[in-house]
Amino acid sequence: MALPDDLRELYQQVILDHSRSPRNQGQLSADSCVHIHSDNPSCGDEIDLYICFNDDGSICDIKFEGQGCAISQASTSMMTEKVKGISREELTQLIQDLQQTVLGQGEIRNPEALGELQLFESVQKFPQRIKCALLGWRGLESALSKNSLSRS
């Protein structure tokens, strides 16, 4: 029996690779670092994000710890590789484009910035996995607003 195509698309090699060996694992302990815990209570996936921001609101460093399915862990791992050093505006656009990729709605404004994250469009066929793919990204959004609040 051959592997179904949908399954191959959902679990592409890049995604499996990130889930087996997540990048940027660990914590950041600086006082200025923002810590956000996100979880999906219905499935037990958990992500702890640690983010240090530059004065201009861009991300200077990011690490995470988590447990959960391949989709949630790979999505977060790939996110941590994308977000360092880009401007606050680019960050906001990236989050929006990623969400629209996963949900299959709206226009993707900057597909180049998404790069391999475009693979997550396969999640559209697995609606029950959308919250897995977005778990780390929801945490990132919370961290951005927490950081903005602490600066205003």
């Binding site: 219905s42 959960g68 391949a70």
Partner: peptide
């Protein structure tokens, strides 16, 4: 090697209905 959700997803694409998660017993 496989989180329950990934395993159950894999099973489902092969026509096998399993349950994955905490089974309401957190």
């Amino acid at each position: 090697s496989a989180h329950p959700h990934d395993l159950v997803e894999f099973a489902n694409t092969h026509g096998l209905a399993l349950r994955g998660g905490h089974h309401c017993t957190q």
